[in-house]
Amino acid sequence: MDPVKTVRKAVIPVAGNGTRFLPATKAMPKEMLTIVDRPVVQYAVDEAREAGIEQIVFVTGRNKQAIEDHFDDAPELVSSLTRSGKTAQVSELADMLPTAGSVSFTRQQAPLGLGHAVWCARELVGDEPFALLLPDMISYGVRGCLAGLMDLYHTAGGNVVGVEQCAPEDTSKYGIVGKGAGVPHGFTVTEMVEKPQPSAAPSNYYLNGRYILQPEVFDILAHQSRGAGNEIQLTDAMVTLSESQPFYAHPYEGRTFDCGCKHGFIEANVAFALARDDISGLVFDSVRDMVLSHEGRIRAA
């Protein structure tokens, strides 16, 4: 294994049904729900491109055509915008459009878990290390989380995971890693435990949905038994891989919003709106007034 082999490809699994957002996701992929004015999945792609990724592999499922259309050219729309003199929108669409051949799609025919979704990308990834970004988890900071993982990977090689700290009493909600010796941009991972009780957790560092993995994980996933939820779990495969390869963790200096749940989705909309020069003032005033009004109703009750 070459520890400094370039990471060129990223896998983004988008096959989930999004049942927690019904009825909004009845006819629209959950990944196309918008954070302000950009779909959730666009944030993952932008983060991958910022980190130097050249090829995006989407693992899709049924009713995901809108994602493919989003990353395709729209000549009729561009022509209409051009005729209307909306040059800023034309430029923004051009910046978002992937270069020809840089995006691929493969199907996960059955919902067998994240590990199975990653395994479905094996032929398109090939025998090289790859990044994995869970699109529901949106990075918010000076730069995306994957760029930090790349920094660590370039110095240490091996496999790298993104982590953040949760409240010690919340470890049972997450995959948790054990913290070992420090390395540039992170630390060594001593163990990985799925949703441990606080009394058994090796730390309060949780996996935040960003990974750089070596291709040997595909062979493990091919024979991985089903785990929690009767699904093929990626964490189980990573635990097996860690028996023969090192794992490192990069603590993200920003914040990750879990847009797979409603409160995280709403928090992300507020945070990204407040970061926008064009609408931050209006949003701040509106949110402040709503909070004060809500507090007043609580006190009156």
Rank of each mutant, 00 (worst) to 15 (best):
R122E: 01
A100T: 13
L134T: 06
Q165Y: 13
L146Y: 03
L133W: 08
V163D: 05
N159S: 12
P184S: 00
V118M: 07
A100N: 13
H116G: 09
A181N: 12
P98N: 00
T106F: 07
F105I: 09
E128F: 13
V103K: 05
L124C: 07
A100P: 12
V163A: 01
H116V: 11
S172F: 15
G186Q: 05
M96F: 12
L149A: 05
G144I: 06
E123L: 11
S172Y: 14
T188P: 10
M150I: 10
G148K: 01
Q109A: 14
L124H: 03
F105C: 06
S172D: 14
E191F: 04
R107C: 15
G115H: 02
T155H: 13
P111I: 10
M137P: 07
E123W: 07
G126A: 03
L132N: 02
P98I: 05
V103M: 03
G186R: 03
Q165E: 15
V103Y: 03
L149K: 00
A181T: 13
C120E: 05
V142K: 14
Y153L: 02
R122F: 08
Y174P: 04
T155V: 15
V183L: 02
K179P: 11
Q165R: 14
K173M: 15
A131M: 08
F130T: 02
L146T: 03
I176A: 05
D151R: 00
